[in-house]
Nucleic acid binder design. Structure first.
Lengths: 210, 210
DNA sequence: TAGATTGTTAATCGATTAACAATC
DNA sequence: TAGATTGTTAATCGATTAACAATC
């Protein structure tokens, strides 16, 4: 499908392009040039064209890019034109926030199961997904062919949960805990290390003044 | 204090180094070589030494690095040897999760105020911080000399909150909403764009197989 | 057609890796 | 002292930017 490995830097810009394009689409703007997009997003026009041309020629000389088409194309490159079965493991406040965000804003992700150790939380319910005990996590993931596991358990439980869902066959893990996970090749992992981000912020706060 | 601008890539690795060093410290390990650290973290030993030497020579030839010293030094570089006054704006589930995480795990950040529009939420309370209406945000930030504002409000309110706290004099904004904020020079901003991260995950899920 | 803007190649810049002398 | 490992310079690699021919 594509010749050589696309660099990580390029991939991390794609969701951002898509986000801006969706915004433009909402405003009813039909076309945009790399120059105008550059002013909006803050990457150079040259970089934007380079990035997009990794995947194909989506523009038209003398005209620019169709906003809706480019939005759709980038979605397809990312794989957001398909749907994914997702479980959320850990239904504390972060898990609840994520569940709610996803079900309201990310239609391609279907939350099919939620897991937590606490009985009190299990008694609750989320839309059509039941909230289950972690003991049934492995079988559930395997039987339901779950694609993605979201991990929002306490730090010290993160690795064992990861091992469980990895063994049960998930394709991706979205890790929102403060540790890095050790996983076999072939399983994609994305970390949202919030505290790392906060610590970087502190650096830039004093670095800015100097 | 330092000669030239340190690259963003280096800065983003610092919290990660610190995280691993804290872990080593907890395990009672007193020294570590760049080689061993490399095996642990996954950066090359060369890169680790280069990164650290941007800030000074923290090691000792023939020996390695003192774990506790290096942990402390990196903390100081980031600015985590000081304390910061913080407000949380938006006390939904995400705001609550963050508040709880910070007060339990990040002693250098003092949550001095929490803001939300909903009366029902204002009636609650968090430790010694009152939960206030957003109308008082500007004055509170100014009078209390708040350093950092955490923004966890709904997307469409994010920019106005950012404008408010920026005008009131915060030095840093930790933005957990799905938009990019427009802010004057001199105010540091860190974005945690969770959905961008999720979308990148999806790319790597299908990219991995090919 | 003339003007605009892409797709793409070449040039530059910066970051990572390799190598090794310094030194504990 | 000999061995280990840093600090640092040089070499390589990759990513960004500039430039421009192709073309709508």
């Amino acid at each position: 499908m594509k010749d050589r490995q696309i660099s990580k830097a390029v991939i991390r810009r794609l969701p951002r392009y898509r986000r801006y394009l969706k915004e433009l689409q909402k405003k009813g703007i039909e076309k945009i040039s790399s120059k105008d997009l550059s002013n909006l997003i803050g990457y150079t026009a040259s970089q934007i064209r380079q990035d997009l041309n990794n995947f194909g020629g989506f523009g038209q000389q003398g005209y620019g890019y169709s906003v809706s088409n480019l939005h759709e194309q980038i979605g397809a490159i990312l794989g957001l034109d398909k749907t994914y079965k997702m479980v959320i493991v850990g239904y504390g406040r972060l898990g609840q926030a994520i569940a709610s965000y996803i079900s309201n804003n990310e239609p391609m992700f279907h939350i099919v199961g939620i897991f937590d150790v606490k009985q009190i939380i299990q008694d609750a319910e989320f839309k059509d997904a039941q909230i289950m005990t972690c003991g049934s996590l492995h079988d559930f993931v395997r039987n339901e062919n779950v694609d993605i596991a979201v991990i929002t358990v306490p730090t010290e439980k993160a690795q064992i949960v990861a091992d469980t869902v990895a063994d049960a066959g998930v394709k991706g893990i979205w890790n929102l805990t403060a540790v890095d996970l050790d996983l076999p090749e072939g399983i994609a992992v994305e970390n949202v290390h919030m505290s790392d981000s906060l610590h970087a912020l502190v650096y830039y706060m004093h670095d800015g003044e100097q």
